[in-house]
Design a protein around this nucleic acid. Structure first.
Length: 271
DNA sequence: AAAAGGACCTGGTGGC
DNA sequence: TGCCACCAGGTCCTTT
């Protein structure tokens, strides 16, 4: 479900309501997520203060007094804040109760997400240690991508979806950024020149920035921490538009699997 | 070392 | 209506 704009939208909502609050209670109803939810969570977290909600790629990091709760939403995860108790729903797996009586609830039907705990410095965590740069930070540049792509034969779309190359770019935004940059998604990464990469970086940044401003993309069921959908869907140029007319040239948008993911492109505009 | 494919899960949809 | 195949916003792990 969530790519960087959706996770960032959730981060902002959770931060606004819960930063500075003391955790009172943690309920773990299901431990079998992508990785086992640590049993000690409900023992160590109470009395700790959640002092900051951060994001690294698609991971949410709840910085607490004695360490960090690391959350990934996988394909179908939700994280919502409720101001009063509500009945448990199917696939509600973890809930945090805070001093202001707000509740943070983790819900994930497919259970590809995770809820983990570490007392170590977060950048050393194995899941984060090898991540590439943040796409909206200054170290993500055309130069960086160009040199990293030397001798890489992988499709450019798979390349920018590789979290060791750059974090946060998932299937929707990879398709959109490549269309916007007029680059065919199957091109081998090493065949793009520096100018191509400078243009691509600019477009990745632009697409993600606008998507964040729109509160993310709701295709079916994405909602933010307050239950609101995102509105970037109306800006989508190619994603999900197979067989429809290209918004630029009118030719038919094509669909093709690349790296096992549905990919959409205009065969005329993108080359 | 890099690339490709399978694996992990549930739920929704569309065809027969 | 029921059954089944296939698809979905991710990414780690194994195999080639």
């Amino acid at each position: 479900m969530p790519e960087l704009p959706e996770v960032e939208t959730i981060r902002r909502g959770v931060a606004k309501l819960l930063e500075g609050q003391v955790i009172q209670q943690v309920v773990v109803r299901e431990t079998q997520l992508r990785w086992q939810v640590p049993e000690e969570l409900s023992d160590i977290l109470p009395q700790q203060t959640l002092y900051q909600v951060q994001r690294r790629g698609k991971y949410l990091l709840l910085q607490c007094s004695l360490g960090t709760v690391l959350i990934h939403l996988g394909m179908s995860g939700r994280l919502q804040v409720f101001s009063s108790p509500i009945p448990w729903q199917k696939h509600d797996h973890v809930e945090w109760l805070f001093g202001n009586h707000y509740r943070l609830r983790f819900h994930d039907p497919r259970r590809f997400g995770c809820v983990l705990w570490t007392g170590e410095p977060i950048e050393r965590h194995p899941l984060l240690a090898h991540l590439g740069p943040e796409p909206l930070e200054e170290d993500f540049t055309g130069n960086y991508l160009y040199y990293l792509a030397q001798k890489r034969r992988v499709a450019i779309k798979s390349f920018i979806m590789d979290n060791q190359v750059v974090v946060g770019v998932g299937n929707i935004y990879a398709n959109e950024a490549l269309f916007s940059a007029c680059i065919h998604p199957t091109r081998h990464a090493a065949t793009l020149n520096l100018t191509d990469y400078q243009r691509l970086v600019a477009k990745i940044r632009a697409v993600l920035t606008i998507a964040i401003a729109q509160g993310g993309t709701t295709l079916h069921d994405f909602v933010d921490s307050t239950g609101q959908p995102g509105y970037f869907k109306q800006f989508l140029q190619v994603y999900g538009r197979a067989g429809l007319a290209c918004v630029q040239c009118g030719n038919t948008i094509q669909q093709q699997k690349i790296g096992q993911r549905a990919s959409y492109f205009c065969p005329v505009c993108q080359h």
